[in-house]
Design a protein around this nucleic acid. Sequence first.
DNA 1: TTTGTTTCCGCAAATCTATGCAACAACAGA
DNA 2: TCTGTTGTTGCATAGATTTGCGGAAACAAA
Lengths: 142, 142
Amino acid sequence: MSGHDSAVSRLRAQGYRMTPQRLSVLDIVARRTGHVGADEVWNLAREEHPYVDLATIYRTLQWLKGLGVVTEVIIGNKLHFEMSDHHNPHNHMVCSVCDGVQTLTPDYLAEFSQRLEQEFGFSPSLDNITIGGVCNQCRAVT
Amino acid sequence: MSGHDSAVSRLRAQGYRMTPQRLSVLDIVARRTGHVGADEVWNLAREEHPYVDLATIYRTLQWLKGLGVVTEVIIGNKLHFEMSDHHNPHNHMVCSVCDGVQTLTPDYLAEFSQRLEQEFGFSPSLDNITIGGVCNQCRAVT
DNA sequence: TTTGTTTCCGCAAATCTATGCAACAACAGA
DNA sequence: TCTGTTGTTGCATAGATTTGCGGAAACAAA
């Protein structure tokens, strides 16, 4: 198996049932370097378990997101996911023109985030913040 | 009519056709202090023009957003809109627990945004950035 | 291994938003 | 005022994601 074993045992220890569907989704996201679309997860999962339902994929992905195991990246109105790496957290900048994704170390957001905490008591969920905008190349074209 | 007259004449001057549907949508968003959901715009618009289609509402709203006339706020997986106030621009913090919305002056984002420009050539679309997280009150409850 | 409890899944349907296309109607010009 | 051009609309449909519900199966305990 791959590097998500620790996640699996942690989840099991927390009392969650590790069904084949869940293991499969976790495996698919963990194997991938970079993000995977929900539909893509579905297609890959079906190779192993032909009867998995797309609803299960979405439910599992949202469940993992809520537990901090995976991170959601919204790319052009579609949901993508990747393993959360708490040792190397990062945010995403998504270009609205080409849907290209660049990553960002969270210290870019740290100061901003601290101010929101201090002045408003609002804790932004930095893990899942995606910055939309236009990238270098696409701006050049316009 | 209300305070969106200038927007109307500007749009007309730009060669866009100001149909009753468009005027109605603009009027509804302008009358409201704060944001309106797309479905809500539809319901209000139908009071005046019973045959407006929901697709038209969405198209018009996206059109106005693209022109910078309205601003989109994503609240709990739903699209909301409000008039853009270029004299008093602001961003939104949306609580993922209670869906409450707080506003934020853009100078909170200014420094952050400038760094992205300078270091990556990425221009974030500040107008439509929504910060997700948990608000003061909801955190207290947990 | 068997049983019981409770979570999870598959299925179907609903929700929200976007889009292709033919018919319609704004606005400009006659 | 009438007419033509072309941008817009309504309708139907598609796509992405979510949700309700009854049956299935994971895990614990016997």
